[in-house]
Each structure stands twice: as C-alpha cells, then as structure tokens.
C-alpha cells in the first residue's frame, strides 16, 4: 500500500519544490525578457484563433439552447443576461483554459521534455543557466498574463455570438441584448471571471513545465509527459473550478461578493 502511494506523493513533493523554486526565481535576475515576450507570443497570440472560435461558438450554442426554454416562458429578453453570466462566470474561463491547456501544457511539456532527453537542460545548467529561471519563469509569467486576456476576449466574442442568435433568430434588438447582458453582470462575476483564468494559468504552466522537466526515456517519454501534462492540467482546472466557484458563492451569500 505504502509503495503504491510513494510515487504520487513523491511527484506532488517534487511539483511543489519546482513551484517554490519558480517563486524564488521571480525576483531574481536575469529576467530573460526576450524569452518572456516570445512565450507571450506563442501562448497568447498563438492561441488567439482557436480561443476566438471556441468563444464565439460557445456563445452561439448557449443562446440557441437557452432560446428554446426562454421562448416557452416568453422570456427571450433574458438571453443576454443568461449568456453573459454563464460565459463570464464559467464557460469563458473554463473553456479558454482547457483550450490553452490542450495547446500549451502539451507544447511546454513536449518542448522541455525534448530538451531534457537530448541533454539540453543539463547543457544549460553546465553552461551557467538555471533552467527554472530561463525556461519555467517566462512560461509561468507569460501564461499568467495571457490567459486572463484571452478569457476576456473569449467572453466578448461569446457575447457577440450570443447576440447573433438573439438578433437574427429571436429578433432581439442590440440594446435589449447588450443592456441586459451589461446589467446582469456584477463585480463578483467579473472578479471570478478574471481570478479563475489566472489560477488556471499557474496550473497550466507549472504542470507543463513539471512534466517536461521530469521526462525520461527518449521520444516515448516525451509523448507520455505531454499526455500526462494535458490530462493533469485539465483535471486540476475542473477541481479548482469547483473550489473557486464555491468560494465566490460563499462570498456572495455573505454579502462580500463585491456586488
């Protein structure tokens, strides 16, 4: 029994050691700004097309699904508020994070994993560079900055998608839809819509880097690390989503929800 637990416990310990070393490296020079900009481009700009597509169509689908139920009760004017709340609180952060996790946790794990198995990480250490500072730090900062930005963009295009359905299929005017959507949102919603992607960004970057840096066993090992990174990152996004949502529900109930 103890032997079965030993591996996972050791992995968790190593993960937090890496997190600790990364936090320590945040304030230490050098900061490798060109690497940070490159990672922001890869993670942020690179993920933009797929985030736009996913965001837009989730808004479209949500409006379509809701319209049927709302029409039954003659409440189609509530399409805007429902799309806005669902997107900003849940769908935007979670969907965007899952898309970015699938794309970038995999990318980070495979890139770092390939470097590990070809001894480039060791070479880096031998040539005077701390791999945590050079590789992990820029990826963590870049993901933490870009994922909330991508989420805001996904939320907006999702609302535009919802508007398309509301306007062309439910005959709502622009002011009906957008005013409803705007009025429905509270600070609590906006806060969790921004805090969630920030937390998921930490998970995506750290899990990708962790599995990349502990890759062993050649190309097969790289594939395994990539798969593990994506699966673990997505699972943690869902688990943390439940916790963060609970915290904001509790805050709203206590009247501390910034509303």
């Amino acid at each position: 029994m103890l032997d079965i637990l030993k591996g996972p416990v050791l992995s968790i310990q190593e993960f937090f050691v890496l997190c600790g070393r990364t936090i320590k490296s945040l304030g230490r020079r050098p900061h490798y700004f060109p690497d940070l900009v490159a990672q922001m481009d890869i993670i942020g700009v690179g993920s933009l097309p797929i985030v736009l597509l996913c965001g837009f169509f989730s808004g479209v689908v949500m409006a379509l699904q809701m319209s049927r139920a709302l029409r039954t009760y003659g409440a189609v004017t509530q399409t805007g508020p429902i799309v806005a709340i669902t997107l900003v609180r849940e769908m935007g952060p979670v969907l965007t994070s899952i898309v970015v996790a699938g794309r970038n946790s995999a990318g980070i794990a495979s890139e770092l994993g390939s470097m590990k198995v070809t001894e480039q990480i060791d070479a880096m250490r031998a040539l005077g560079t701390d791999p945590v500072q050079k590789l992990v730090k820029p990826r963590l900062i870049a993901t933490s900055i870009m994922l909330p930005c991508l989420t805001v963009i996904a939320d907006f295009v999702g609302l535009v998608g919802g508007f398309m359905i509301a306007h062309f299929m439910l005959s709502l005017t622009g002011s009906e839809y957008w005013n409803g959507a705007y009025r429905a949102l509270e600070y609590n919603d906006v806060a969790q819509g921004l805090i969630k992607p920030f937390v998921y960004a930490l998970v995506i970057a750290m899990v990708g880097c962790f599995y990349g840096l502990r890759t062993t066993g050649g190309t097969q090992g790289v594939g395994l690390s990539t798969t593990k990174a994506v699966v673990i990152a997505i699972v943690w996004i869902f688990v943390l989503n439940a916790f963060i949502t609970q915290i904001f529900v509790w805050l709203a109930e206590k009247g501390l929800g910034l509303s």
Binding site: S114, T118, E119, Q120, D122, A123, M124, A126
Partner: peptide, 12 residues
C-alpha cells in the same frame, strides 16, 4: 569547466 555532451546537446 567545458563539457561536450553525448550527441552535442546543442540548443535547437
């Protein structure tokens, strides 16, 4: 110290 790794370990 200078070190040559197996396969060179050059940065791609």
């Amino acid at each position: 110290v200078g070190m040559l790794f197996q396969e060179g370990a050059l940065f791609d």
